[in-house]
Nucleic acid binder design. Structure first.
Length: 529
DNA sequence: CCCTAAATAT
DNA sequence: AATATTTAGG
């Protein structure tokens, strides 16, 4: 749609309520961008597929003011088509590929701007300028409006809306802006659409408006009602049972400092999966929006959870605190609260799962800095229950599947199995509360590399029967060996400390530089924020 | 900040 | 019903 100068003049709180069409195949990026936009009170409609987007813009009722469209080598043709079809819609192209010719062509086809990803809030904040620009160019009169008329008639829907609006209204009062005196929170430029597109930020982008595309196809459960969930995003990808993690693109493999080969002997396959499941919107810095609404729910996918667990283990369960975990996770958008909350649940689970401290104590190993949130002394120990066919229940509680199913992903059916790499009997880290250590050595573990258990050959093993934990001497021995032969993998499932932790530790000790060649070639990872 | 527990929200 | 976020209190 095209705004006119008059529209803008009558638009209180402009650019709040600006309706943005977001077309991005990358679910992560779409989520991120969408969240940011929403934080600034823009109304976002997300699309993953061109066709959906095209259908949407042809539906006048949507009344988009501006579009943000991702373009990449493989989809550029479609995107060009989009540009041609959306002449009236100020369209901003974006990409993480830097192809000048593509950019050029986009501009030639009428794109108003080309922004390189990632799109910062600053970049996004000002997209309204294109709307204004167009409006002023269009002049004061509102000729342009081909305004939808098809459904503009229903007075019924009018009432419905009203309800919504009132709800919003009351909500607003709670949170902020007494400015919004009346229900016309976001007086949209042109009346007719007003009813249609008039969605509050809170109610999110989709809801009733996206009906056409998204919800129609996949009866995604509460789709229309839940635009906020991270993965609800696009109609194409999101397929209930399919999995939420449809890993569309791979653009972001950055920020994987953690993916270290470290202690991942248990799950080699997904070690590197750089997939960053970015979650919510939260942006600590610059938050113009008062975030009234409840925070967007973080979807703790296996990926995310894996990072979480890795971080926790890296820190050591006893030292794992939200802020540190957050740092190690390197997940943009995730907040300390998110982590804290997750941690809380995680601990709770562990508590349930390993409730038997059974009077067993670990006096000597207990460090003063340790906390005792954990019922069990972990590190060197083998799990009390190690039978491959019944280890600890996984956190996401097992589905009602037959016992033989153990080892298959126990995640809610809608999660694809590849996401939960609990396919290994000892995938401790992946399961809630499961120890990182594999069961006894003599139990066979096909996937396991022989070198992983060099300790097994030593006397350590004998001592470690089902519920025998290594004695102090053994521990000493292990530690000594680890120190003397740093090139060997750490025994008993231990992991080397993270680069960050080492560096920060060194820093604490006044050592700020590390001589080259000492590392494993990993290189320094960017510091936390 | 951190931790829990309990209340809410989705 | 399960899982996340908020809130409140220490």
């Amino acid at each position: 749609m095209v705004c006119t100068a008059n529209d803008l003049l009558g638009w209180k709180d402009f650019p709040k309520g600006l309706r943005v069409l977001l077309l991005d195949e990358d679910i992560n990026s779409a989520t991120e961008i969408g969240s940011k936009l929403e934080e600034m009170d823009y109304v976002v409609s997300r699309f993953c597929s061109e066709n959906d987007a095209l259908a949407a813009i042809s539906d006048e009722s949507k009344g988009f003011h501006v579009a943000i469209v991702e373009v990449r080598e493989h989809n550029k043709d479609g995107r060009f088509k989009f540009l041609e079809s959306a002449k009236d819609l100020p369209t901003i192209m974006t990409s993480d590929e830097n192809c000048i010719s593509t950019m050029m062509k986009c501009i030639a086809l009428g794109a108003v701007e080309f922004l390189e990803k990632p799109l910062s809030e600053d970049k996004l904040k000002n997209i309204w300028q294109h709307v204004a620009h167009k409006a002023f160019k269009a002049g004061p009169k509102d000729q342009t409006q081909p305004l939808k008329s098809e459904n503009g008639s229903d007075a019924a829907s009018d009432h419905m809306k009203k309800e919504d609006i009132e709800e919003e209204f009351s909500e607003n009062q709670d949170h902020n802006d007494e400015a919004y005196i009346e229900t016309d929170k976001y007086p949209a430029p042109s009346t007719p659409q007003l009813k249609q597109g008039m969605r509050s930020v809170d109610n999110g982008d989709c809801h009733d408006q996206d009906q056409t595309n998204v919800s129609t196809q996949k009866q995604c459960v509460d789709h229309d009602g839940d635009p906020k969930f991270v993965e609800t995003t696009c109609g194409d990808l999101v397929v209930d049972s399919a999995t939420t993690i449809t890993d569309t693109n791979t653009c972001k493999s950055l920020e994987d400092g953690i993916g270290q080969p470290s202690g991942n002997e248990c799950c080699p396959d997904l070690v590197i999966d750089g997939k960053k499941r970015n979650a919510a919107s939260e942006h600590p810095n610059s938050r113009p929006a008062k975030s009234s609404r409840r925070k967007i729910k973080v979807d703790w996918t296996s990926e995310l959870h894996k990072k979480f667990v890795q971080a926790v283990e890296q820190l050591g369960v006893d030292q794992a605190i939200p802020s540190r975990i957050l740092e190690l996770m390197h997940v943009e958008g995730l907040t300390r609260h998110n982590v804290a909350s997750h941690l809380q649940k995680y601990r709770l689970q562990r508590r349930h799962i390993l409730p038997k401290d059974g009077g067993r104590k670990w006096p000597q190993t207990r460090h003063s800095t340790q906390r005792n949130y954990y019922p069990q002394k972990p590190i060197m120990a083998y799990p009390p229950y190690h039978h491959p066919n019944q280890v600890y229940p996984a956190w996401p509680p097992p589905l009602p599947v037959p016992p033989q199913m153990w080892g298959t992903p126990y995640y809610p059916a809608w999660q694809s199995s590849e996401n939960w790499m609990w396919n290994h009997p000892y995938v401790g880290a992946k399961a809630w509360g499961c120890p990182t250590v594999p069961p006894l050595p003599h139990t066979s573990f096909p996937q396991q590399s022989p070198s992983q258990f060099r300790m097994q050959s030593t006397q350590t093993m004998e001592k470690n029967s089902i519920d025998n934990y290594p004695g102090e001497e053994v521990i000493d021995k292990v530690v000594k060996e680890a120190i003397n032969k740093p090139w060997l993998p750490l025994p008993l499932g231990l992991k080397p400390p993270s680069t960050e932790s080492v560096i920060s530790e060194l820093a604490k000790q006044g050592i700020s530089t590390v001589p080259p060649g000492t590392g494993t070639g990993t290189g320094i990872i960017n510091a936390s924020r």
